[in-house]
């Protein structure tokens, strides 16, 4: 190395390979620690207090969590989160279906693919507005369609039984587009020789899909599941736009209920809100851990 050739070099020259990475990392790490990593622990800490955001905090121990256990609204939110998680998963097979349908090379298909992807590019606020309008019981398209069959309009967003499903259907629209694009990219990279070999062996349709295509789409499928789980647990925008958690709180999810408790006209219960957030965080942590472990194994293999 250079160092041995020139014994009298400065501290920087001798150690720059050791120090340089930390200098490169410092700005990003500081920002990320201050705005993302520390706040996670601060939130967990705040969840043990009663706090309105202004006056001094009062320590309540597990008080907020005990209160959660008896809170009807918390269970409604939790139940809705489960419904979101389960139904949102539909985005994965439907996205795959659309990707298979569009994976052709006919004239104009590139434009068609981008147009199919459109719902993902626009803001969820716009999607929410569009769908609240679609569901309007007097003049919405849904009411018109039902009218064709002589059925009365259903006030989807005003009905406790339908409201969550209505919002999920709206949320699925961009999510399907997202999964579709992941699968299209995956399909693009499917090994053509294996497909041809399969054809020679007489595999067609389902057999081909199951035994040759799907195994090769595993990375795309994994990613689609990850982004869909995260999307489902993060659902907030649509609920805020379409129903504000109503009617009677029946469309709340944890993410929305937390916001409502901590930062809205219902009061500024930062401690209680943080307790809800902590529960949501722990649920999400399960998925984050699975994801990290998988990536960690991939990294190990790469070495």
């Amino acid at each position: 190395m250079q160092n041995s050739a020139r014994p009298r070099v400065g501290f920087w020259e001798r150690h720059q390979k050791r120090i340089a990475p930390w200098l490169f990392l410092a700005p990003a790490m500081i920002m990320f620690l201050v705005y993302v990593i520390f706040p996670i622990f601060q939130s967990i800490d705040i969840s043990f207090y009663e706090w309105d955001g202004l006056s001094p905090k009062t320590w309540v121990g597990f008080g907020n969590y005990v209160e959660l256990m008896g809170d009807e609204a918390f269970y409604t939110s939790l139940k809705n989160n489960v419904i979101w998680l389960v139904l949102y998963m539909l985005a994965v097979p439907v996205g795959l279906g659309i990707a298979l349908y569009l994976n052709q090379s006919v004239f104009g298909i590139r434009l068609v693919k981008s147009l199919f992807f459109f719902p993902f590019v626009i803001s969820q606020v716009v999607v929410g507005l569009v769908f609240s309008w679609f569901y309007d019981p007097s003049y919405g398209l849904l009411a018109k369609l039902l009218g064709v069959f002589g059925l009365p309009g259903i006030p989807v967003l005003a009905d406790e039984h339908y409201v969550t499903y209505g919002i999920i259907a709206a949320g699925l629209w961009p999510q399907i587009a997202y999964c579709m694009i992941l699968f299209l990219t995956g399909l693009n990279n499917v090994n053509p020789e294996q497909v041809e070999a399969g054809r020679i062996d007489g595999a067609t349709g389902w057999t081909m899909l199951r035994h040759i295509i799907l195994p090769q789409l595993r990375p795309a499928t994994f990613l689609a599941i990850v982004v869909t789980v995260i999307g489902a647990l993060r659902s907030f925008d649509m609920i805020s736009i379409m129903t504000q958690g109503g009617p009677f709180g029946s469309s709340r999810v944890l993410a929305y209920y937390m916001f409502e408790q901590a930062l809205s006209e219902y009061g500024y219960r930062m401690g209680y809100g943080s307790a809800i957030a902590t529960v949501l965080f722990l649920i999400m942590m399960v998925y984050i851990t699975i994801f990290i472990v998988r990536m960690f194994k991939a990294e190990r293999r790469a070495r």
């Binding site: 706040p39 939130s43 930062m270 949501l280 999400m284 990290i292 960690f296």
Partner: peptide, 22 residues
């Protein structure tokens, strides 16, 4: 690296109160 990845996936709500406060 994994701290960056994990932080990327946390729900916004767990950051909300401290970030607003900051």
């Amino acid at each position: 690296f994994f701290v960056f990845i994990a932080g990327n996936f946390v729900p916004f709500q767990i950051l909300m109160v401290p970030v607003r406060d900051l």
